[in-house]
């Protein structure tokens, strides 16, 4: 599927704004500066999604997963390196120097994931003027295979997934993570339409 340069620009702008809002939310939560890489967009065959996500997932990770539905549908994931997840949880609780993610830490990280994923997808919704609904967020500390089984886009007989992702880091890299949005290619059509309308609204207002 080929996008025109204009479509790529409009989509990139929406994605940049949404991910920047996410980084701002994380910074507000923790009081630390968050550095964000330039977001990337790629289309993967569904049966290669596991291998694609495995790039982001070293040995031990903590993942918060939320399903979103509406005119665009898919899975949103916050992926954190395990030690970084502990650091982040410690920042937000009264615990210091934890070695493992306990029940309290997991609960805190689930809420952090909820806030960040809502910030990202909510901003998409605002910019594109579509309404997105969210599932209750779930935290995973299990294998990639188990995580993939819970992805909604893999369960609908779809052949391709659009993946939008960016890496972020804070506290000199001790907390590293990825934001991953996976949606069906059918949702991509709608996303592009709305991104083009968003661009038109920009120059009509200005």
């Amino acid at each position: 599927m080929e996008l025109t340069d204009q479509q790529k620009d409009a989509l990139s702008e929406v994605i940049n704004i949404a991910f920047a809002r996410t980084a701002a939310s994380l910074s507000e939560l923790t009081g630390h500066r968050v550095l964000l890489d330039v977001p990337k967009v790629a289309i993967f065959p569904i049966d290669q999604l596991g291998a694609a996500l495995a790039e982001f997932l070293p040995a031990e990770v903590a993942t918060v997963h939320q399903v979103f539905t509406g005119p665009v549908t898919g899975d949103a994931l916050l992926l954190l390196n395990y030690d970084g997840a502990i650091t982040l949880a410690d920042l937000l609780t009264d615990e210091k120097g934890s070695k493992r993610l306990n029940t309290s830490s997991r609960e805190v990280l689930t809420e952090v994931g909820n806030i960040l994923l809502n910030a990202c997808l909510g901003m998409f919704g605002n910019l594109l003027q579509v309404h997105v609904s969210f599932s209750v967020p779930r935290m995973h500390l299990e294998t990639l295979d188990a995580l993939l089984r819970s992805l909604v886009i893999g369960s609908e007989g779809l052949r391709y997934a659009l993946v939008v992702y960016t890496a972020f880091r804070m506290r000199d890299g001790s907390v590293k993570g990825y934001l991953v949005i996976a949606l069906s290619v059918a949702s991509l059509d709608r996303l592009i339409q709305e991104a083009e309308r968003y661009e038109e609204r920009q120059w009509k207002t200005n």
């Binding site: 909510g122 605002n126 003027q129 579509v130 969210f134």
Partner: peptide, 25 residues
């Protein structure tokens, strides 16, 4: 008091009788 920052959600809950809306964080 929600993480949902969408203006469409805000309109929905205001129509439902909410007195105000604050966002997380």
């Amino acid at each position: 008091a929600s993480a949902d920052i969408q203006s469409s959600t805000r309109s929905l809950v205001e129509e439902g009788g909410a007195s105000a809306y604050i966002n997380k964080p």
